[in-house]
């Protein structure tokens, strides 16, 4: 079996792992790099709980062959907070009770981060669109959408304050 060495950056840190054919980015993150934030809800691209950012874009990591991410820049939920300081999206989810069981949360957060990075002032419809690939069976989505809109506002306010 050919094993490929994959070099990449994860949450800003240089990492490397050995990938067997068939290994997905999700399993490499979880089992080889010990980053278990991204979850496996379906392993078939349907639930979004494995969402991470690949060069800034949200992907379902359960469908990404690990061998294809050599040289990539990956962001996962573990890299969102700066020490104790949560990101705006994390804080808004916390304050807005946008989590219940928490299984969908890491994927939701990454989809939300990607949205706000390219669209700092999204409408509710745009938020819905951005998380349309993320299934949440617990919350009914409403608190998640509000939290993402709230996070966008917090970010805009902070950007204004620093200008």
């Amino acid at each position: 079996m050919t094993v490929t060495i994959v070099n990449l950056k994860v949450n800003g840190v240089d990492q490397a792992f050995m990938a067997r054919p068939g290994t997905t980015l999700l399993l490499a993150l979880r089992e080889q790099l010990g980053l278990t934030g991204a979850k496996r809800g379906c392993a078939q691209g349907a639930c979004g709980s494995c969402t991470v950012l690949l060069d800034g874009a949200p992907v379902v990591s359960c469908l990404v062959p690990a061998t294809t991410v050599d040289g990539a820049d990956i962001a996962t939920v573990e890299g969102l907070a700066d020490g104790q300081q949560l990101s705006d999206v994390q804080q808004a989810f916390l304050d807005g009770f946008a989590t219940q069981c928490g299984f969908c949360t890491p994927g939701m957060l990454m989809s939300a981060e990607a949205l706000l990075a390219r669209n700092p002032d999204p409408t509710a419809d745009e938020v819905n669109e951005a998380i349309s690939g993320n299934v949440c069976r617990c919350t009914g989505y409403a608190p998640i959408v509000s939290a993402i809109l709230d996070a966008a506002e917090r970010r805009r306010n902070r950007v204004e304050a620093t200008h």
Partner: peptide, 21 residues
């Protein structure tokens, strides 16, 4: 009152059974 488990959920630190290797 914040949920006691929410900080773990938003940081990815909540340990689900499959998160153990």
């Amino acid at each position: 009152v914040p949920r006691s488990d929410a900080l773990g959920h938003v940081t990815g630190r909540t340990e689900f059974f499959e998160d153990r290797t």
